[in-house]
Design a binder for these strands. Structure first.
Lengths: 237, 237
DNA sequence: GCAAAAGTGTTCGGAGTACACCCATGA
DNA sequence: TCATGGGTGTACTCCGAACACTTTTGC
């Protein structure tokens, strides 16, 4: 390695690199974000996205998984890089780049696995608190992206328990898009993907008739995931 | 500001942060990438994406614009953040995060404005050289993204001169998607957007009959850009 | 006049959309 | 028996896809 190359590297500025995760959940009624109390802030009631520093020897994806695991004790979460935020003044303490990740978990898994090291709370998208730094911008972008992604790919399953009913799924999509959907068209479109397997079991206690449970055909789901499914019509966007 | 906050920041690892730009152009026949010769490498014939370091006081978008300007002398280029690459071993010299940007320029502007500080060359997508680091992955992702984006938004104009003909535009889309399009359906779809203004002038020298020039209705273009145009059908993807 | 590219219209099928009634069951 | 949510079928419209002929003009 020639010396001038090394010199070129050595004279450059270095920066802090962090990850912030926008964690979505669905409780059967509305979409939620998982936020943590920013303990180290002066202002007591500042909520923040779950975040952390990237360590020396880990990849970005690994760092994002680790940070998510620290909070939720969950592994194998749906996690996707969203955007990198790097405004010089975004963090008032010191310039920090933040790579925002987008995560989908299902609320049931989380409440079982909850880590108590953090003070965390689900917030409905309609009643979000005031955010730290540029986290509001990150959240806006994540919501946009969730809508886009859910309209193209059958991503919604990541937010639901293993067994779910079609009305539950419809409620989820209505929450994501903020608009009502026709249940006849919705279920036809959904079933036409052949991605759902109908179970013998019905959901009890919620409605009188009870809705059949379905589960995802995992094999087809994985295979078809990256194909363009046009899962829901564009008009919802 | 409390001391423990500062301490939390001070003990973290810092990293180099760079930008790499995937620069697309179109010469009337095929899609091209603009690459620069990596002079500082041992291996003489290594080509690389145009890149540079992020400076202390500039935003990411500013850094990307500056780096693009250094190479092409062009301003107001279509430039969009694509993805951040951060594998610990991606740069063998020292760990470096690279934020990949996606740029569209039109080849005519570039050849007029060319800066000679860099040894740069257009490469056809079919005959790309061996890349440095993970640049091949960046390029793959950028091509995918270009296809997606061009299918949804009328982004193709960014790659063409101010005045262009419909057959030129069709060639461009065929190059982007790598498939042939029906000229009747294409021109109908295109004109239905009302984004094109027909000029009195014909292109001469290329075909005997000559094709009419069009230009973009800039106002409508800007207004409609972020709406979901479904510019070309999904089936091209 | 002929070759080569430009320009235009019609038909068909499938998908999106709107819409209304019956079913199962707990209370 | 009645109220509540679950489950299904049909008709219309519009858009995408396939396809062929005429026009212009340089040679």
């Amino acid at each position: 390695m020639r010396l001038d190359i090394l010199k070129q590297y050595e004279t450059q500025d270095k920066f802090l690199v962090a990850i912030d995760s926008i964690i979505f959940g669905f409780d059967g009624e509305s979409l939620k974000l998982l936020l943590v109390k920013r303990g180290i802030e002066n202002e007591k009631d500042t909520w923040s996205l779950m975040g952390g520093w990237v360590h020396q020897e880990e990849s970005l994806q690994d760092a994002a998984s680790r940070i998510l695991y620290e909070l939720t004790n969950l592994k194998d979460i749906y996690l996707e890089q969203l955007h990198t935020f790097g405004d010089p003044l975004r963090d008032p303490v010191q310039r920090t780049f933040s790579i925002a990740y987008f995560a989908l978990i299902n609320v049931e898994d989380y409440s079982q696995a909850l880590s108590s090291d953090y003070e965390a709370q689900w917030f409905s998208l309609e009643e979000l608190p005031t955010f730290l730094f540029d986290h509001a911008e990150m959240v806006d972008m994540a919501i946009q992206y969730l809508r886009y992604k859910a309209s193209q790919h059958p991503i919604g399953f990541e937010l639901l328990p293993e067994k779910f009913t079609i009305p539950q799924l419809q409620k989820l999509y209505e929450a994501i898009f903020g608009s009502e959907l026709d249940k006849r068209n919705f279920s036809r479109k959904l079933l036409s993907t052949k991605l759902l397997i109908k179970l013998d079991e019905k959901q009890r206690g919620f409605s009188k008739k009870g809705a059949y449970f379905y589960k995802v055909d995992e094999e087809k789901y994985k295979k078809q995931f990256n194909t363009f499914l046009n899962f829901l019509p564009n008009s919802v966007l």
